[in-house]
Design a protein around this nucleic acid. Structure first.
Lengths: 114, 114
DNA sequence: TTTGTTTATCGCCAATAGACGATTGGTTTA
DNA sequence: TAAACCAATCGTCTATTGGCGATAAACAAA
């Protein structure tokens, strides 16, 4: 019944995390965005995208002293968080800010900081 | 000379990360704040602090279904990021938002999102 | 001084993250 | 078809994170 990845616990120790805690939707969403922003390379990539409006993976490989696979990995995480989107522009892939989610993130941070 | 925690590399493979990349101050700062916000429990703790204005570790242990040591760890990370500060109020410790850095973070996110 | 209360730290473990090189897959162009 | 190009994915490695219980440290009160 329990997920194999989590320990069981004695009843008298209840209150301990059973798997994981569920937070409000906004809390989860904000944490997800923040996590994606929690690496300087990804911040830098996004700043670059804001200037260029769009760009290709190859451009970034030239800009940052990182392996192509590493850049690709960061782009994947930004995409998973919904902050960017990739458009097939053969033979390249054009990455742009996802403005809808960008606005959502902006609003969430705004509200959070009052 | 190199930190032991980083590989060396062949000269012909230059362009690879020598230890780590140095980004602009704002980029680093923003990533650091974002990283601290990158866990829903820490978001929830901060929201709680915003409401309460201040609180003790013990209060949080009652609010969240997490071990005292886990809460303490999250508080430590928030403190390291500068988002909160602890005031000795024996025998307890009162945690509050660090308003100076809070404002700095707010501004950085604001600027980042345009 | 001893006891109780509160919080931080330690040690451990599983899971995740971040970096790399190498390989694969898809699309053009020769 | 073959060759070239670009980006994603795979496999591996190390470091970090997040959780826990147990222990230590700090201080108040008895």
């Amino acid at each position: 019944m329990h997920s194999k990845t989590h320990r069981t616990f004695a009843i008298k120790n209840m209150k301990r995390s059973l798997g994981h805690i569920v937070y409000g939707k906004d809390t989860e969403a904000l944490a997800k965005f923040a996590k994606a922003l929690g690496h300087p390379t990804r911040i830098a990539i996004l700043k670059h995208l804001e200037n260029q409006s769009c760009c290709f993976t190859g451009d970034l490989v030239d800009v940052f002293p990182l392996a192509q696979s590493t850049i690709s990995q960061h782009l994947k995480e930004l995409k998973n968080a919904g902050l960017i989107q990739g458009e097939l522009k053969p033979p390249k892939i054009k990455y742009c800010i996802n403005h809808e989610n960008w606005t959502m993130a902006k609003t969430l941070f705004q509200e959070f900081f009052d």
